[in-house]
Design a protein around this nucleic acid. Structure first.
Lengths: 226, 226
DNA sequence: GCAAATTAATGATTTATTCAAG
DNA sequence: CTTGAATAAATCATTAATTTGC
């Protein structure tokens, strides 16, 4: 798996995409099969009806067209593509769990980078995988604990009791671990990765070797702070 | 204000950070004032107690130390910093609203870039501002409409009725606009910005001129796909 | 044994909620 | 009070476990 790859020079290695019969991982929205989307029949094709008005919007539309074109090119390739999601190797998993156990909850951008770099030794991995992993793991640990409390409570505590973020686990007798649920005020400063941070970085240096288009125009805007 | 800046050459322009008495915008988590966080008194200092164990973690710890150090350096600078949050100029706001009205809901990374670049003419703006603006605006329009429906319905519709994503607004008599609430299946492909995408970009090219540290080690890992 | 079918785990996205600046 | 920013919760979707019938 994990046949998707780009080389340093900025060239897109299409061969890697023509693989087996798998779908491309959902960079694109999934077809309207979501139970929540009750309007799949009525969704509109969107950008197609932009009318050219003032300066800005016509410019914007032009640029959007470039993007569209790039997309089409991309989709003319064999409809096939590669596997989709990251699967941690046992080593990677162990490492992440170890970090979690030691208190890492919402690693900063740097931390994510370091972790990612380290774990790459063990196999494919991206920063986003680390990011998501911690996000999911944190959420699911919390939820697991909540459920445990629920069943343990039985007697009928108030629901808000489950909102506490620091909890002692003592379900069995052998359980002596304090699980500290980290909250945002855990570390004083610059230690949480967040979307904004991430965006700053990405917009600082959208590079030619990304899968994303880089129009001449947008390229000319690079080097600035966005 | 938005005095934060980096130059192309990769040098960190500290002067830009030593500005007036304002706090740095919340890259850092807020102090423990959240009503949800009931454990502020018991949270632990975290990373301090890492014991050196196997290969990976000692390495990681080293790297974490680097990060810590960088943070300290950063914080040794005048405790001051720049203003905090973006405030759209009227032109920017108009443009964003126009885009929204025409159907833009979750602009892709490119789109955000283009929009940002265009709107910079009117004043300071970052990609993340555009990102957040659409996110918030979408959410608040939905919520507004939901409230409207609630009050309009009175009779007692099922809550799930509010889940529909395509709705006709006809509150007044002069209102003839179809507001199309975009969903994930709105555009077939690569047209929605998401965290993963963002992360890919940022990790593809974390640059020396970013505010973030770039350790020699992590630097050596650049040029690869993360 | 083995694959199709089904279920459980969990990676990845989106939506809702919350915080706090102005 | 409005709204930019950040986080948490809910949801979606793919992969691994596993069950099942042969």
């Amino acid at each position: 798996m994990w046949m998707v790859g780009y080389n340093e020079g900025g060239e897109f290695n299409m061969a890697d995409y023509a693989f087996n019969g798998r779908k491309l991982r959902p960079l694109m929205p999934r077809p309207g099969t979501s139970p929540n989307n009750t309007s799949s029949a009525t969704t509109t094709p969107c950008l197609t009806r932009i009318h050219h008005g003032n300066d800005f919007f016509s410019q914007y539309h032009n640029l959007a067209s470039v993007a569209e074109q790039g997309k089409r090119e991309f989709m003319n390739a064999p409809p096939v593509v590669v596997s989709s999601r990251w699967n941690p190797t046992p080593e990677q998993l162990r490492a992440l769990e170890e970090l979690y156990m030691r208190g890492t909850r919402t690693p900063s951008a740097e931390q994510i980078q370091q972790i990612t770099a380290q774990l790459r030794r063990f196999g494919k991995i991206e920063g986003k995988n680390v990011f998501y992993w911690f996000q999911n793991h944190k959420a699911r640990e919390r939820q697991k604990r909540r459920r445990q409390m629920e069943s343990a409570a039985e007697g009928g505590h108030h629901p808000r009791d489950f909102d506490t973020t620091l909890e002692k686990k003592d379900l069995g007798t052998s359980r002596t671990v304090f699980e500290v649920e980290q909250t945002k005020n855990w570390v004083p400063s610059t230690n949480c990765s967040n979307l904004a941070e991430v965006y700053s970085l990405s917009f600082l240096c959208l590079c030619p070797w990304s899968r994303r288009l880089l129009t001449p125009f947008s390229f000319s805007t690079l080097g600035f702070i966005t």
